[in-house]
Design a protein around this nucleic acid. Structure first.
Lengths: 204, 204
DNA sequence: ATCTTTGTTAACCAAATGGTTAAATTTAAT
DNA sequence: ATTAAATTTAACCATTTGGTTAACAAAGAT
């Protein structure tokens, strides 16, 4: 009855292995044999289930990106106050990235290597759109609730502080003398820290 | 009399070509033939001047990193007020990255792929050390000049806001509807914008 | 039970790729 | 001018790598 492998079906095992290998080595750095080994199956199986390396990569990449963007857009589209939105966005985004620390670098890398294809392939008709948030910020500035600030800069700042520490973890660890445990703790703190930092800056 | 190529010596041309190709495609994505073509010379020349692909890459990488880190350390080691230091760091760092927009992603990528080798290979005995800045921040907090904030978070925030926009440029352009010219202008603004944003947040 | 479809494997293949070599060309030294 | 050293090139080589094939095994259908 032990079908073919440890537990899950072959296809699932391949996907998990591919994710792991692609995330760490990138498209060009990954070897089909690495993925097969990681999945504990024959290399030909990769081509049996997914026709080619590129096809397999596309599956992994789409799943990765669909893990990042929709959530983002959902939060910024909610009808809540700006401060609450900032708090919610930074908290929930941190939670996602803490669970998938390699995701951002992986996605950003491939976007940078294929800026053309990416846009169309990734989110065909409806790309993530931050203009709602931008309008909300503009509105709050005009109403005099927050200090004057360019919405684009504010959004950039927010996203930067959420994502960058994970991308630069090894470097940060060196220059800031932080070990893995401390890093984990710091990221936990940032779930509230970032929002406080931003709000302190823009509130009147 | 036309020595061997357009103008510079072969070695220099190789270095420029290698930099360009490695920056865009990474170590594993770059092909020696690509570099040779880009430099307009025979592939064997690459091995004549630099023994192997790895050796050539190491030269490029070290030059890239040595372009990023020492400047960073120099500024944070200066004996000036915290606010001035924040202003100077963000401005000068932005200037470096504006001139070398692909540098950060390139360096961070390779650090992430070789965390072990990197540390030793990159800055042997004296790694960049931010503890001076950390102490200065701690001191200003205790003296009551700025609000209480964890120095590590503050430094992370500052670096994030400087570097991340360049790493995520293609994504930002999509979600924020920004073209190349606007992006360039935004980055110019950030030379002062980031410091203001930080100082507004931490000043009392 | 037999046949058919699906899943799996080892062996193989062609192209790509990093690297080498030996000859040719250029430059510099005597 | 002659010789020696440095530079450059085309042809080659060995390995790696994505991908294919044909045989085999397992499962389902009849």
């Amino acid at each position: 009855m032990v079908k073919n492998s440890k537990e899950a079906g072959a296809e699932q095992r391949i996907l998990e292995a591919a994710k792991k290998v692609f995330m760490h080595k990138g498209l060009s750095g990954a070897r089909m044999q690495d993925i097969a080994d990681e999945a504990g199956i024959n290399k030909a199986m990769l081509h049996y289930y997914f026709r080619s390396k590129d096809k397999l990569f596309e599956v992994i990449f789409k799943e990765a990106a669909s893990n990042l963007f929709p959530k983002m857009v959902a939060i910024i589209s909610e009808d809540i106050s700006l401060f609450d939105k900032i708090r919610k966005f930074t908290r929930e985004y941190l939670e996602i990235v803490i669970e998938n620390p390699y995701l951002p670098l992986f996605v950003l890398n491939e976007i940078n290597k294929q800026p053309a294809n990416f846009h169309a392939k990734m989110f065909g008709a409806k790309p993530p759109d931050f203009s709602l948030l931008v309008k909300q910020i503009d509105s709050e500035v005009k109403k005099g609730i927050i200090k004057p600030i360019s919405p684009v800069h504010l959004v950039m700042n927010m996203m930067s502080m959420c994502v960058f520490p994970f991308i630069s973890k090894p470097m940060l660890q060196i220059v800031m003398h932080v070990d893995d445990l401390q890093f984990r703790y710091l990221m936990e703190q940032r779930k509230t820290e970032i929002a406080n930092f931003i709000i302190d800056s823009i509130k009147k």
